[in-house]
Amino acid sequence: MTNAITTTLPRVADPGTSAPAARDLDSKRGFGDKVFDRMTSASGLAVLAIMLAVGLFLAIEARQALSKAGWSFFTTAQWETGRGTFGISAILLGTVLIAIVAVTVATPISLGAALFITEVAPTWVRSTMIALVDLMAAVPSVVYGLWGLKLLQGQVVGVSRWLNTWFGWIPIFKVNGADPKNPLTNATVFTASVFVAGLVVAMMVMPIACVVMRQVFSQVPVGEREGAFALGSTRWGMIRVVALPFGRGGIIGGTMLGLGRALGETIAVVLIISPRNTITAHVLEAGTNSVSALIATRYNEESGLGLSGLFAAGLVLFGITLFINFTASWFISRSRSGASSEA
C-alpha cells in the first residue's frame, strides 16, 4: 500500500523561532494519480476517436462511389447502382421533408407540454408528466413504427383525404391519382406517405425537444417571474414577456436537436413508407424514401459499388446531423439560460 492515506498535521511553530518558510504549493502527483490521469484521459480521447472513426471509415468506404459518381451523386434521383446511375437528391429530399413534417408537428406540442409542466401543472401532475415524457423518449423506435403502421395510419388517412380534398390546390397537398371529386378514392394513395412517417417521427422528436425546453423554462429567474405577476400580468403575459424570451435559445436548440433525431430515424420510417425515389414535394402521396431507410433496406442486396454508395449516403447523413447537433448545442450554450443547461 504505497498510497495509503497519510495525514500530515501542521506543525505548530514555536513563537520564539523565525517565521516558517513558505510552503511549496506545487502538488506532486503520485504514481496512482498518474495512472488515473492516463486512464481518464484515454477514455475521453476514446470517445473522440470513435467519432473520428465514424467519419474516417465512412469516407474510406464511400470513396469508390463518390469518385465514380462525382457531383452527380447529389443531383441524381435514381438509385440504380447496377447501371451506374445513383444519387441521393430524391432520397435527401424525402429525408428532409419527413424531418420538416415531424418538427412542424412536434415543436408546438413539445413547447406546449414544456410550458404546461413548468407553468400550469400542480406539483403531482408535474412529476407524472416529467416521468411520462421521459418514458416517451425511452420507447424503442420499432414500437413507434408498429404503432404508426397498425394504428395511426388508419386514423391519418381520413385527415390526408380531407386535406387533399379541400387544400389540394396548394402544391404540397396535391396527390397524383386522387380525385377530389370522388370521396371513394382508394385509401392506398394516402398511406405510406411523408405525412404519416413525419407524424410517427414527431412522436419520437417531441420528448427530446420537450426535455430541453422544460429544463430551460425551469431556470427562469423567480424574481422576473414574480415581477411580471406583481405588475398585474396574467399567466400568458408572464410567459410571453419573461419565459419565452428567457428560453429562446433552449427552444431553438431543442427543436434543432429534435431535427437531428428526425433526420436519422430509421426503423419507424422503414416500416411506414413504401420506397420510391422520385423528386416530389407531395407530402400526402404514397411513397417516399429517406437516407437511413435506403441503407436499412438495401444493405444486404448491394455489394461493391452499391454498398459503397450506401456508405456515401450514410456519410452525407452523418455530416448533416453533426452540423445540426453542433449548431443546436451552440444555440443552447449561447443563450442566457444555457450556462448551466445540460443539453
Binding site: V47, G260, G264, I324, N325, F326
Partner: peptide, 10 residues
C-alpha cells in the same frame, strides 16, 4: 453531446 443525436444507423 453531438454524439447523443448520432443517427443509430451510422
Amino acid at each position: 453531446t453531438a454524439m447523443t443525436a448520432l443517427p443509430s444507423i451510422v
